[in-house]
Design a protein around this nucleic acid. Structure first.
Lengths: 344, 344
DNA sequence: CTGAAAGCGCTTACAG
DNA sequence: CTGAAAGCGCTTACAG
């Protein structure tokens, strides 16, 4: 009952050429005459033929597919990142096989399901890879690139935002603006992004001999941030400035501060986030935040991966890009930043 | 230089069985003895063997891959939908090949790139399919399911939200609440979702002998909604209630109304959206909106597609699910809805 | 339950 | 430039 598939042999017969000729007609740069090509394409059109990419992948040992593993699609930062990856890979003629991982899910169970489809390379986002699995991929000759994660000395390349550096800058900004009681809203605690942002923030505060920041966990979600802010302000010791490990929590924090606690931002409390997601720029929030160079990071990740695919001898790289502070209205500023025109 | 692939023949040799036995060991339900299986798996483990899904796809004529075409990933409704699709397909053991389409891009150019990989079925979201292309897929025997779009009398199944019905209910709610000058913020004008929502809204208003609503186009984006609201209130004839074709525009509208126009919501203006995206529920917005039964729609789409894959004789279906009005704080309510406890 | 063999639909040396 | 042939790594009748 299944409709008959049209194969290259059918086209060959129709066009009066060999099956190899049909194959060559569809291979850019293959040695075929224009005349043969024309005959082939005419026959192909007549029969409704299209080459079978699965058969091509099998014989050529190149699937032209890239596996992308994502988690955390709830955080708007990642759909934007996925979109960029998709555009780049589509432009380059790669197909993308997508996998969603829960953040708690072990990615080691997921990878074999990707690898059995002989993907040419793998991009892993917002999930950590065990070094055993990285080694396994390396043994199969399938390059892996990590986006926004890194594995110490593993067989995988990585492209990250310099979270520590950016978080140190946030601490400086807040302290320079005259804040004295800082707070940190943590994301998911065991992620490297959270750990690095927290480390950069707190270590810089210590370096400047200020008291350790208050702290609550917001699990990288709006609701988590909202509740964390409420808990933080329920205590005696109230913060006057909050650094949130990502934007989506920061928005929850802002809504809690203004809507529930009836405090003003930034007059009573400064709030700074991380990611620069679209809603951070909305009129209702105007969140001051750190913008990772997402586009550049994605491009570097793709480039790195493609290089490894084309030349398996490519060494692994670990790239680190600086984030940029986007100053909007949710945080008080040091005088010199606040009124630059008053200086000159 | 490419690492040698381990094949079923290698495993067979190692295990001292035939290549077919290896294949059977990996085929659930195939007739193999436990003893053989054990030998095979031991050898496979030793050699690091994993079946090649590409080869399996070629011979079995089933790729186990589903193609998903998405556009409009900027609208948070769609990442959520993609996430649901991914979970369902992953649970069922399907792989997903993802394609992103620009909204202006013709999907007819994209589909052949999917079909050459012999996907078992295709899900198309937020993009319309030409009926020629639908017929082409049908001829190839590749079932297609449209999510939130439909093609009149085409060879594709579809699962939609009843946009017309929902929009009529919105008109009723607003009129019953005493609003007299309604406005409509359109999305992308040539999409079926926009057309149906607009038609339902305006036709119901006409039926109730009220003046046609004011209208501006917001292109389904936050910024578009923001600007559209500004334009609408710049005129002499100002609306007292706005229905926005999706939530993300509604949030822009709310920010413009409160932040730029200094009007109160809902005291001065009511705002209603469509989609019930996560941010619609945020404290800062509390948007009254229409919630399409997204989860159910996704499940139906998957079920429909899988049914068609398993039985090509399955008839096409066109399913229509009702949306649900989620009442929050952004719209004035008719008395009976407003104070239900005052009635009894 | 098991193995030998055919074949899925291509690409690519090889020889002409 | 062209065709005949081998082979990618599997599944699946077929016969035992």
């Amino acid at each position: 009952m299944r409709p008959e598939r049209v194969t290259s042999s059918d086209v060959a017969k129709e066009a009066g050429v060999s099956q190899s000729a049909v194959s060559r007609a569809y291979t850019p740069g293959a040695s075929v005459s224009e005349a043969t090509k024309e005959k082939v394409f005419a026959a192909a059109k007549k029969l409704g033929y299209q080459p079978n990419a699965i058969a091509r992948s099998l014989i050529s040992r190149r699937s032209n597919m890239i596996g992308i593993v994502m988690a955390d699609i709830v955080n708007p930062f990642y759909p934007a990142v996925l979109d960029m990856f998709m555009r780049l890979f589509q432009e380059r003629g790669h197909r993308v096989m997508l996998f969603m991982a829960s953040r708690d899910q072990n990615i080691d169970d997921l990878l074999p399901r990707l690898l059995e489809y002989q993907v040419d390379g793998v991009v892993i986002t917002s999930v950590t890879l065990s070094s055993e699995m990285a080694n396994y991929c390396a043994k199969l000759g399938t390059p892996v690139a990590l986006f926004n994660r890194y594995v110490p000395q593993a067989e995988a390349s990585s492209v990250c935002c310099d979270n520590i550096d950016a978080a140190r800058n946030v601490a400086d900004l807040l302290l320079d603006a005259g804040h004295r009681r800082l707070g940190y809203i943590a994301g998911v605690e065991n992620t490297s992004t959270n750990q690095d942002r927290e480390y950069g923030f707190t270590s810089r505060i210590r370096e400047r001999r200020m008291p350790s920041p208050l702290r609550e966990v917001g699990h990288y979600t709006y609701e988590g941030g909202f509740e964390a802010a409420l808990r933080l302000f329920a205590g005696e010791d109230k913060p006057d400035a909050l650094f949130c490990a990502n934007d989506i929590m920061a928005l929850g924090v802002m809504d809690a501060i203004r809507g529930k606690l009836n405090l003003r931002i930034p007059e009573d409390v400064s709030v700074i986030g991380f990611d620069d997601i679209a809603s951070a720029g909305w009129e209702g929030y105007r969140l001051t935040t750190v913008r990772p160079p997402a586009e550049k990071m994605v491009e570097l990740t793709v480039q790195t991966l493609v290089d490894c695919i084309n030349d398996p001898k490519q060494p692994m790289v670990a790239l680190m890009e600086k984030g940029e502070l986007v100053v909007r209205g949710s945080a008080r500023l040091p005088e010199q930043l606040h009124m630059p025109h008053a200086q000159g």
